[in-house]
Design a protein around this nucleic acid. Structure first.
Lengths: 108, 108
DNA sequence: CTTCCTCCATCGAAAGACGATGGGAACCAA
DNA sequence: TTGGTTCCCATCGTCTTTCGATGGAGGAAG
């Protein structure tokens, strides 16, 4: 009931994933862990949000995927930024900054 | 196709409305104009986003409404913040700041 | 009289996030 | 060997929010 506390800011998930992948290839689980730890446990993206998002990014050609083995010898799907993905990251970041600036003007 | 440019950051509309109403009673159209001008034309909230949001705020008891006449002598519905609304404004603002801070840690 | 602006409101579509759920494989302890 | 825990994949159904399109009504202006 009632209290709506989304774990992330809607509309920012793609940006967060793309930015994470800028560091190098990662698998889904790793991305979620990364976001959680870097944000001091604030950004808790569940797998049911993450995997659809990754499908989106694949469809748009912003990331590529390949199967491999994780550090712990487990089957894992590794995602990599494409050139389009790097462009998109820049665009989304600029748009995010633009929005946050505008909101701050309202809140000031 | 493709280019998705939302006019506002999803999930922040209630916050923006509540904050606008902190200045005093306003009607819907006025809120939209206010957001647009204060944000230098960045935040362009359409009426089909605005009125459902106002209904939400009414249902939650965060704003109250009364009919009156606008400055231009037109029939207008004026919205006011309630005590609950002021509390909610504080909560949403804190949550927004928390999220933006977390996202900045990822983007840094 | 016609057109523009103000101000209200709804409907249907699309998108995004999430809880619940399911499974397989490695690792560890009892 | 069995059972639990962590890692890692993924989907389905639901809810919520946003938005384009649409439709008025009344005042102001040309």
């Amino acid at each position: 009931m009632g209290t709506n506390n989304p774990e992330i800011l809607p509309g920012t998930l793609d940006l967060l994933i793309l930015k994470s992948l800028q560091r190098g290839k990662m698998h889904g689980y790793g991305i979620a862990q990364h976001l959680k730890s870097v944000s001091d446990e604030v950004l808790q993206v569940g797998e049911s949000s993450l995997y659809p998002a990754l499908q989106r990014l694949l469809l748009n050609g912003w990331v590529e995927a390949e199967w491999g083995a994780s550090e712990n010898n487990r089957r894992a799907r590794y995602y990599t930024l494409t050139a389009f993905g790097r462009k998109q990251l820049q665009r989304e970041r600029a748009e995010f900054d633009r929005m946050v600036l505008a909101i701050h003007k309202v809140l000031a």
